[in-house]
Amino acid sequence: MPYLVHILILFCIYAIIGISLNLVVGYTGLISIAHAVFSTIGGYAVAILMTFYGWNFFLAMLVGVLVSACVAWPIAWLLSRLTWDYYVLGTVGFNYVIYVVFLNWESLTRGPLGIPGIPRPTLGPLNFTSNYYFLILALLFATAAYLFARYLVRTSFGRVLKAIREDEQALRVFGYETTRYKVAIFVIAAMLAAMAGALAASFLRFLDPTAAALMDSIFAVSIVILGGVANLEGSILGALVLVAFPELMRFVGFSEDIAGQMRQLFYGLLLIIMMRWRPQGLMGEYKL
């Protein structure tokens, strides 16, 4: 049972990641391979402020979300001029730069050593130290993220995003400043991701720069693509499958290193197979 709770918490965290990235990848059609950067920013805010300065989790998370927005803003603005595979390459390059920053800014992040002993959240009399209570917290955040995203895509703002994906040129002709919309959704997604990253850092109680490795950004994209492009429920399904399936390998009895590699192998094959036979994902509404 504790094991199941552990998995469910991870599922909630990755559902937030998937939902937020789907706003960018699925609804707006911008294939960003840099999402782990923003979750890691949220994670580091919590890790540094809570562990070294004794801040409250929720305040630290708020700082993380704001920092993430401030980083996402100029990046989104720069990248929004790129199209198609150049956009992908730009995000991959950006992801690598920030990873190197986390790795080398040792006075802030302790570099490759990482930050251990990150506390669990507390709020007045409420204490989320045990996994059961943490699960409730994670569920609350995931539900809030889902409802917010669902609301967002149904507004006129959301319809403009989809129109950008379908035909940006036409939208510009109608006088829409598409760049603004692209930047806005990228920043919103980065803020949601920072929230998820803050939860993850506090839950796992350890954070090092590998959290921002390219692999994790690809993992986030895999959630979106497997579940369904431009379908929020799909991202929840994608998170469930991709979090739960590798756990099965734990029972096969591979060593820790091999199991990790097998997991990556699985994600890679999954991407290839989905792109070949079902580019819209399991529940998707839009073909890439």
């Binding site: 294939i31 391979i33 198609w84 595979d85 992908v88 390459l89 692999m215 690809i218 994209v221 693509i225 290193d257 091999i258 590699q261 097998m262 990556q264 192998l265 994600y267 890679g268 094959l269 999954l270 991407l271 290839i272 792109m275 070949r276 580019p279 890439l288």
Partner: peptide
């Protein structure tokens, strides 16, 4: 006639598969 996004994502998949095979 898949879009170039599909090809790029596929090639990221290829990258991961080869990397993890080498690691295994």
């Amino acid at each position: 006639r898949a879009s170039s996004s599909v090809l790029v994502i596929t090639s990221l998949g290829v990258l991961i598969v080869l990397q993890s095979l080498l690691a295994i």
